[in-house]
Amino acid sequence: MLVYLGRRLNLLVITLFILCAGSFALAFLFPGDPLTNLSGLANPDEQLRQQLMHKYALDQGFFASLWQYFQLIFAGDWGISMRSGSSVFEEVTRTLPASIELSVYAMVLSLFIGLPLGIFSGLSHRKALDRGILSFSLIGYSVPVFWLALLMILVFALKLGVLPMSDRVSLLYDVPLNTGFVLLDILQSDMEHREAALQNAFAHLILPTLSLTVFTCSLIVRLTRRSVINVMDSDYIKAAYAKGMSRSEVVWQHGLKNALIPIMPQLVMQFTLLMTNAMIVEVIFSWPGIGEWMIQAIYQRDFPSIRGGMLAVSVVVVSFTISMDVLLKLLYPLSKRQLHAQV
């Protein structure tokens, strides 16, 4: 086990290292002065230029400056946003939680809806219920997320007028910024109208979360269904029936566990896909997350922000993937044999 853990940690460190190096290279690949791309300070005068040269160790050769860059990244000095003039790291820590929050809620909702539906569908293989669920999941899987989001705005916000369509909480509520997760922030705060604010935040969450959920949920339904069908066809299930166990006993004691374990890694991996979709949905719902922030940065050619945003998102995705991998291996020791990393 320790060997396995070591290998995964190794993988994590090396991947992060490569990501950092990649983001460092971006500063040179973007158009313009690498020094400006790194620091975010446009047109520095001679004195400032010298200072920056020294700070980023650009005058001491490639490896020295790369090493210097790592140290700065770890110290939280990611340069300055050319757009707003504030620290990129601060802006990332403000916007990233909003995206993660949205993705987490969508993931939880998808699991809550997708898993049971997939199981029902798998258990009633080739019956009307199965066909119904399957066709719905096919539709959900095929609908583009951005189109669905627009449709939801049209129906629920503009036509019915029951739900808001932009931002995380009405601006009337002055939610203090602590963790960056809006629900947590409201709960932690000592605001006057906490419950009303919480309700308002929930209302703002519904449309973006649902737009994301439809796709992920459809995927989960299809994965679960396939796995349940496979397991229920296997010999040990037949043996269990032969022992005289009832259907519900068989399903609960043998079927589900065996059906869910193999798809766990796949389910977890949906989260990264979800993050990507979340970034699209953010733009449509003016959700102040990293996706919207990066789109704005791209529009305005704010290279330090683009660099920082890409690094932050990839670090989150990589760390999440690897840590989930480790967690799953700990929970289900059966797969311990797969010692090597898989792509």
């Binding site: 909702l109 809550f112 809806i113 049971p116 539906l117 029902f120 029951v162 739900l163 009405s170 601006l171 009337l172 509520y173 109208h193 419950e195 009303a196 309700q199 308002n200 929930f202 209302a203 703002h204 969450l205 519904i206 649902l210």
Partner: peptide, 30 residues
């Protein structure tokens, strides 16, 4: 189980849709 499941969706909607008087009062102040 199905009934429980079907209950989830409307519940999510209801949470957002219901605006009690306090929310409204506050909203009127800005």
């Amino acid at each position: 189980n199905i009934a429980l499941l079907l209950g989830v969706l409307p519940m999510v909607f209801a949470l957002g849709a219901c605006q009690d008087n306090r929310t409204r009062e506050l909203a009127e102040q800005g």
